[in-house]
Design a protein around this nucleic acid. Structure first.
Lengths: 170, 170
DNA sequence: TATTGTTATACTCTATAACTATA
DNA sequence: TATAGTTATAGAGTATAACAATA
């Protein structure tokens, strides 16, 4: 007997029931993308979370901490530590809002802008690598389909029509 | 974190840099799919991991624990607990391999088969809900694109041509 | 009393590696 | 010595809630 070219001689195969599920692939691929990103960001000393925070600050400065957390869907307690780290590296500054001293105004420094530029380049490279097997039209198609799912499942993501772009975070 | 369900009403918007990234959407959608699955499986008293294990046993019985772990990419230590729980519920049986008493042969019981059928129905419903916004042709397109990415990033998943299917796990 | 930011606590996952019994 | 399974431990990540300052 010989199953000859039966798939995956060495690797015990995943049940077809799993491998043929779209949501299964989505989960595993999302996890793989996250892992690759974490590893790459490690070398920068920053986390994708930091990139996400800087990206928010770049779109509209003078943000309050609550607004940043809400924009990203992060917990406010979690954000404190991220901002501490960004502040320690001189990438952002916090100052009390004089009109409401409970609030902190957060703004990006010049060094922060430079760091963001580097993180963007890193993210572009990562995205490009991850999608390497797809041509331009396939990438556009995939993006459109995922956006449609996002409309349904990520109410947080408000979409206008946008071109290509690339990003960090988890 | 909870990238979950924050309502979109007055929500400060996510930076376009993030929202327009395909890998970002992949990560968040994968996370959302996982969350939905976990919540739904909770009511069954079983975890998607349990479903995955049963699915392996259904394809080829008499599996050894190491083979099951390898097939799913799980750690062997992690698998022990999962099998303990399945055994406690009478869904699987373990018995020592007489020819090598270090090995355990694991097989699914009749109750296990019934449980698997229910989990499959649950998974089908979940997948259908998750893809609700896509028509048949879009679903096929998405699945094909994800499979292409899986070829690149999930060497674990060996694909033959398959029809539609649905699955659990994370 | 409610809210902003902060801190502390607890819980879930997972990865590592020690341990046993067989080989 | 090496391997299959088991158990125990430690660490990261995250969610919860208590807390202080201000409104």
């Amino acid at each position: 007997m010989t199953t000859g070219t039966s798939p995956a001689a060495s690797t015990p195969r995943l049940p077809a029931e799993l491998a043929s599920s779209t949501t299964f692939l989505l989960k595993r691929l999302g996890f793989a993308a996250k892992e690759q990103a974490l590893e790459a960001y490690d070398q920068t000393g920053l986390h994708p979370y930091h990139h996400a925070v800087l990206a928010v600050l770049d779109e509209g400065s003078r943000e309050t901490q609550g607004a940043i957390a809400d924009a990203l869907g992060y917990d406010r307690g979690q954000l404190v530590g991220l901002l501490d780290e960004l502040e320690d590296r001189g990438l952002i500054e916090r100052k009390r809002d004089p009109s409401d001293r409970r609030r902190q105004s957060v703004r990006m420094t010049a060094d922060g802008k430079r760091a963001l530029a580097k993180l963007r380049a890193l993210a572009v490279g990562l995205e490009n690598d991850f999608l390497a097997n797809l041509d331009e039209s396939q990438r556009a198609s995939l993006h459109g389909l995922l956006r449609e799912l996002a409309r349904q499942h990520l109410p947080h993501c408000v979409f206008r029509q946008d071109g290509a772009a690339v990003a960090a975070d988890g």
